[in-house]
Nucleic acid binder design. Structure first.
Lengths: 248, 248
DNA sequence: CGTGTTATTGACCAACATCAAACTTAGTGG
DNA sequence: CCACTAAGTTTGATGTTGGTCAATAACACG
């Protein structure tokens, strides 16, 4: 990985993430490194942005595990996506105004707020950055489609296996996982809310995956003991994540 | 609605659509009107773009009803979205290369192919157009979220009512529906594939909605007899479509 | 008219939900 | 470092939504 210009660790997180999905020039990296970041701590189980609000900045996740979700009429919750450090989960607010869902912290989280004005300026000056962010939005949509296919047409076992594969792949891409081992600090209730299942059923299926020797879970840590088996169980093909291949 | 510059009916379809979700200046409208459109007929139940391909152009729907979908490992099909005239259902291919799903025609369809090169040029010259298209992508994602919430957490009845509300609202926005009456040329099998239901169950729930006086369906034509009731039945709130209000 | 597609019905079944209780674990304060 | 507490996990019993299969009825179209 190329050595970088003068950039704070927080900016590096952003740059590194964008480089997993697009190619940036030195100029663009410098521009990104100059973005104003207002760091903020968010407590576990707190909203970062709530539905109905129109925040004046977009946020970059620096540490912690977050999700986008919505509470439905009947009281049920649907989680739409999980987000890890490097992600920009509310680019939406930059162009769409009022949030049609919420962004919440599943663990204690550190975020960096980036004023929309600063983003707009960078985008206007560096079209390549605009394209990279747009590309991020398109990938976002691709992930929603993958989840939709899961909830619509896959069994509970397939959905859970697929989700584990996805999170591992993404965490790995931004360099936050040891080989086959990573953190997934999500309760079984939250898993259920993301997969359209009850927590009870999630529990039983997880036991099944462990019994079958596909994963080992010790608390919030997950270890994948049989990647091929897990991929098969989840019918997982990482193409939809549109990650740039950076092989040695 | 403001009178327009010299533009073909096909270009007008595109301009009118984009004006439902963003504000364009005269300059932008003129640029859009100059885009090269290669019109093509597509037969019913044929793919416009197949999964795995990297088409050299994006397509604009001119006539007909289309959908994006994917066939899963087990043979099941998940439909991700329905598209109506004016939609640009594969902006994805402009930035992501290989398609991770297919785009198919549900009825005999007329599309206009727009070379990526032409789009890239227009985008580079008119940032406002880039923003409008990016905004379209964001709305696309918002619609996926709405569907995800439905399939994950709503009953069959709610999902079907919600989908009818959505399609009616969108068709209305581009001026393709009489009051309370519109065309929805989708089989019950296709409805099921979009909602994560079997066609048998879709059939029964549709009967229920008719019995309850919410809709009347005569073949491919749908009439909404009780909009408020239907909205309530589907817990429908059009906010996620992010349409621009153009009241008289 | 005939033929293929789509809609409708009925009988039966399975995956997953719900409820409620017991058990574990992790975090906290003394 | 331990006891206490709250949060999360696990289990069992039972219920329900919606799936599957298969046959019949309605259409739509040439």
């Amino acid at each position: 990985m190329k050595t970088l210009i003068d950039a704070s660790p927080n900016h590096l997180r952003l740059i590194r993430k964008l480089e997993t999905i697009s190619v940036l020039g030195a100029e663009e990296r410098t521009a990104l490194a100059g973005l104003p970041l207002h760091v903020k701590d968010v407590a576990k189980n707190t909203d970062i942005v709530g539905e109905g609000f129109a925040p004046p900045d977009s946020c970059l996740i620096l540490e912690g595990f977050t999700c986008r979700y919505k509470i439905l009429h009947g009281g049920g919750r649907q989680i739409f996506s999980f987000h890890i450090p490097g992600d920009l989960p509310d680019l939406q607010s930059l162009h769409l105004g009022v949030m049609d869902h919420s962004l919440g912290a599943l663990t204690a989280t550190k975020v960096a707020l980036i004023p929309h004005a600063a983003l707009i300026e960078v985008i206007a000056t560096y079209p390549q950055i605009a394209l990279a962010l747009w590309r991020d939005t398109l990938i976002d949509a691709a992930v929603f489609r993958a989840w939709l296919a899961g909830v619509g047409r896959r069994s509970a076992r397939e959905r859970i296996a697929h989700l584990i594969c996805e999170v591992y792949t993404r965490v790995r891409a931004v360099g936050l996982a040891e080989a086959w081992e990573f953190e997934m600090p999500v309760t079984q209730q939250e898993l259920g809310d993301s997969l359209g299942l009850s927590s009870v059923h999630v529990n039983r299926v997880l036991q099944e995956l462990r019994r079958d020797g596909l994963i080992i879970s010790k608390g919030r840590y997950l270890q994948i003991s049989d990647w091929d088996g897990l991929k098969r169980a989840g019918d997982f093909d990482p193409g939809y994540l549109h990650l740039i291949q950076r092989d040695a």
